[in-house]
Amino acid sequence: MQNQVTVYSTNTCPYCTMLKNYLDQNGVAYTEVNVQEDQAAANRLVQTTGQMGVPQANVNGEWVLGFDPQRVQSLLKQ
């Protein structure tokens, strides 16, 4: 099954880098949205989740706030 993963990040966020590295190491394809460079995406993210912090990931329709590899893994389709 194909996973749908989108990572919302900024250029300077160490936890964003950790999340992307985790996904890369586990062979999980994802789309990255840099909210530091895309203000419209940042606004949509806050409107959708009510959270301003990053990283945020949408994994198969479920939101994960912060670097939470256990939660990400539990939402991935095997």
Rank of each mutant, 00 (worst) to 15 (best):
42 A>Q: 15
52 M>H: 13
15 Y>C: 00
25 Q>C: 02
76 L>Q: 00
68 D>C: 06
25 Q>L: 10
67 F>W: 08
2 Q>N: 11
66 G>Y: 06
29 A>D: 15
29 A>M: 12
77 K>Y: 06
29 A>F: 10
24 D>C: 04
39 Q>T: 09
53 G>P: 04
7 V>H: 08
12 T>S: 12
52 M>R: 13
72 V>H: 01
54 V>K: 01
58 N>P: 06
28 V>P: 03
24 D>Q: 11
20 K>H: 07
74 S>T: 06
74 S>K: 11
54 V>E: 02
10 T>K: 04
47 Q>F: 02
13 C>W: 02
57 A>D: 01
23 L>S: 03
47 Q>P: 00
24 D>G: 01
13 C>R: 02
16 C>M: 06
3 N>M: 06
71 R>D: 04
75 L>R: 01
67 F>T: 03
26 N>L: 02
45 L>P: 02
38 D>N: 15
68 D>T: 07
37 E>C: 07
46 V>I: 14
56 Q>N: 10
7 V>W: 04
65 L>H: 13
35 V>R: 04
56 Q>K: 04
26 N>S: 03
51 Q>M: 12
54 V>N: 04
18 M>Y: 12
48 T>V: 10
33 V>R: 10
56 Q>G: 07
14 P>W: 08
43 N>K: 14
44 R>D: 15
65 L>T: 14
7 V>K: 07
37 E>R: 10
17 T>D: 13
62 E>G: 08
22 Y>K: 03
1 M>W: 09
34 N>Q: 01
49 T>R: 09
36 Q>C: 01
35 V>G: 00
64 V>G: 06
2 Q>D: 11
70 Q>F: 09
73 Q>W: 05
8 Y>S: 03
49 T>H: 11
75 L>T: 00
49 T>P: 09
76 L>F: 00
10 T>W: 05
16 C>D: 05
49 T>G: 10
42 A>H: 13
48 T>C: 05
32 E>Q: 10
73 Q>T: 14
46 V>T: 13
48 T>Y: 13
